[in-house]
Amino acid sequence: MKNNVTIKDVAKLAGVSISTVSRVINDSKPVTDEVKQRVLDVIKETGYVPNPLARSLVTKKSNLLGVIVPEMSDSFVSEVVNGIECVAKMYGYDILLANTYSEKDQELKSIELLKAKQVEGIVMISWTLDEEHVQLINNSSIPAAYISKTAQKFDVYTVCTNNEDATYNMTKYLIDKGHKEIALIMTSEADTILESERRTGYERALTESNISINPDIIKYGNTDYNSGYKAMMDLLDKNIKPDAVFVTGDEAAIGAINAIFDKGYKVPEDISVAGFNNSKLSKIYRPKLTTVGQPLYDMGAVAMRMVIKIINGDALEEKKFVLPYEIVERESVIERK
Rank of each mutant, 00 (worst) to 15 (best):
D155R: 05
K2D: 09
A190V: 14
L194G: 11
F76C: 04
F76S: 10
N63P: 02
E181Y: 07
I137L: 05
D191W: 00
D234S: 12
T100G: 01
K263H: 10
N169K: 10
T161E: 10
K230P: 00
A301K: 15
P70A: 09
K280S: 07
Y173V: 03
R23N: 12
I111S: 09
T291A: 14
N214A: 15
I334A: 06
F76Q: 11
K61P: 04
L235I: 07
I260N: 12
I185N: 01
S188K: 02
R55H: 09
A151S: 15
V42K: 05
F246D: 02
A144F: 00
N26D: 11
S102W: 07
P50N: 13
Y93T: 06
A274K: 01
N312H: 09
D41G: 06
G275N: 04
E317W: 03
F261T: 05
V24C: 14
I68Y: 01
A231C: 12
L323P: 03
V80W: 04
E326F: 08
E112A: 12
V159E: 15
I308E: 03
S110D: 10
S188R: 08
A231L: 06
R55L: 01
L194Y: 12
I217M: 14
P287H: 07
K319N: 07
L114D: 08
D250E: 13
C160M: 14
V21I: 00
A231E: 07
E195V: 12
T171Q: 00
I147F: 01
T32L: 14
A231V: 08
L136G: 00
A144T: 11
I311Y: 04
V328F: 04
S62P: 04
N99Q: 12
K8P: 10
K266H: 02
K280C: 01
D216I: 01
F321D: 05
G249S: 14
Q118I: 01
I213S: 04
G66D: 03
D130M: 10
Y168W: 00
M232S: 03
E131R: 15
T207D: 04
T171F: 04
V58N: 12
L113W: 09
V159L: 15
K230C: 03
Y101Q: 06
E269V: 02
I111L: 14
R330L: 06
D105G: 09
D9P: 00
S56P: 10
N277K: 09
A259C: 08
K241G: 09
D176Y: 00
A14T: 15
D9W: 00
E79W: 05
I217H: 11
F76D: 15
N278G: 02
I142F: 08
C160A: 07
M232H: 04
E331H: 00
K8F: 13
D314V: 04
K263Q: 14
V123Y: 01
N277C: 12
T290R: 08
W127C: 10
I271T: 09
M299F: 14
M233D: 13
E132K: 11
I43T: 06
V156R: 15
V328D: 08
P242Y: 06
L236K: 03
I308G: 04
I257Y: 05
